[in-house]
């Protein structure tokens, strides 16, 4: 235990040195330390690291074949290929994150407020001369810092590993795409983090908030699609009797409803970022496709394509945060 203070100082030196740190940064510092030391974070980070190494191994063994494929317009983006290709034995890394990211977010946030309350530390904190929202902000910021460090180091690890094994020079556009992908993953996890913080404000038992968060996650990953399929098959007319435009408009409606799910938004956005040849996330008509050369898009174009998805994710995050604020700020706190 003696080594811990030293370890913390190394983690956030700026706060430790300043003479009068603001309560907010003191809290962030403590929360980061708590998260990093907690078993659940260690376990989940380990799990993510293992999947990362697994998928990286699979893609490295298949990289030769993928870049040699002349049919693929993305074959020149070696580092993007490293993140996306697979031989079918393991899903690629971004699919894993789509699945494990929510779990990480939930694990970091589900007991943010209610465990403090049941421990009796919340009321003691609130009796300190600090603003009440500092606590919520600090909890969120700390977890966000932890998640960002984890993901950015994984990305950089991947880039470094790729550089060492292949020796191929990296295009700036690739680097930007990978960083955008990482930022997007952090935003996606931030959504789940905020959702679980909201539930931890709402429910007084940590078990209740954890189970509710997992239930929401399961509903969105598994049941929402099934439900949607049932509803669609029950309500939509037989596609054989419809005209081309009607089919297209129905398809558009279905995709819109699908996109209410955060994981769908994430999948759409990562696919576009990591596969530069993806030029639209909806159906394209023949007129739109006419004359298009199957070539990769520039970063700017790809970012324009994913922008609605990113705003959707950020909006969902902000809504959760605002709700936690609303519930927490005027609540009476007692033990």
């Amino acid at each position: 235990m003696q080594s811990q203070p030293a370890f913390l100082k190394g983690l956030l030196p700026a706060n430790g040195e300043s003479n009068n740190a603001s309560p907010f940064s003191v809290m962030v510092r403590k929360e980061v330390a708590d998260q990093v030391r907690s078993w659940r974070f260690i376990i989940l980070a380990g799990l993510i690291l293992v999947t990362f190494l697994g998928s990286l191994y699979v893609s490295l063994t298949n990289i030769g074949r993928a870049t040699a494929n002349p049919q693929d317009p993305d074959r020149l983006f070696l580092y993007l290929k490293l993140l996306t290709i697979t031989d079918g034995s393991l899903p690629p890394f971004h699919v894993f994150i789509g699945f494990l990211g929510p779990l990480l977010g939930i694990a970091l946030g589900f007991d943010a407020i209610n465990s403090e309350q049941s421990n009796g530390t919340l009321i003691r904190l609130m009796a300190q001369p600090i603003y009440r929202d500092s606590l919520l902000n600090a909890k969120f910021t700390a977890s966000l810092i932890v998640v960002s460090i984890l993901f950015f180091s994984l990305s950089l690890l991947m880039i470094g590993g790729g550089l060492i094994t292949t020796g191929v020079k990296m295009e700036p556009s690739e680097f930007i795409r990978i960083m955008c992908f990482t930022a997007l993953s952090v935003i996606y996890i931030a959504f789940w983090l905020n959702l679980s913080i909201l539930l931890s404000v709402k429910f007084r038992q940590t078990a209740t908030s954890a189970l509710t968060a997992i239930a929401i996650w399961l509903f969105f990953t598994v049941f929402y699609q099934i439900l949607l399929r049932i509803v669609v098959s029950a309500f939509l007319p037989d596609p054989g009797t419809l005209s081309q435009e009607q089919v297209a408009s129905y398809n558009g409606a279905i995709i819109t409803i699908m996109r209410l799910v955060p994981s769908q938004l994430y999948t759409d956005a990562t696919t576009t970022l990591l596969m530069p040849s993806v030029r639209s996330l909806g159906p394209l008509t023949m007129e739109q496709m006419a004359g298009a050369i199957p070539s990769p898009l520039s970063i700017r174009e790809s970012l324009l394509v994913v922008w609605p998805q990113v705003s959707g994710l950020i909006a969902a995050t902000v809504v959760c945060f605002a709700l936690s604020y609303y519930l927490f700020m005027r609540r009476e706190i007692r033990t």
Partner: peptide, 23 residues
């Protein structure tokens, strides 16, 4: 408070230092 609670995995000194910093 009547049911005073502390961060159980921090030592007494660390708990107190945290509150001191917040102040």
């Amino acid at each position: 408070p009547d049911n005073v609670g502390f961060y159980n995995d921090l030592t007494a000194l660390e708990n107190l230092v945290y509150i001191g910093r917040l102040n």
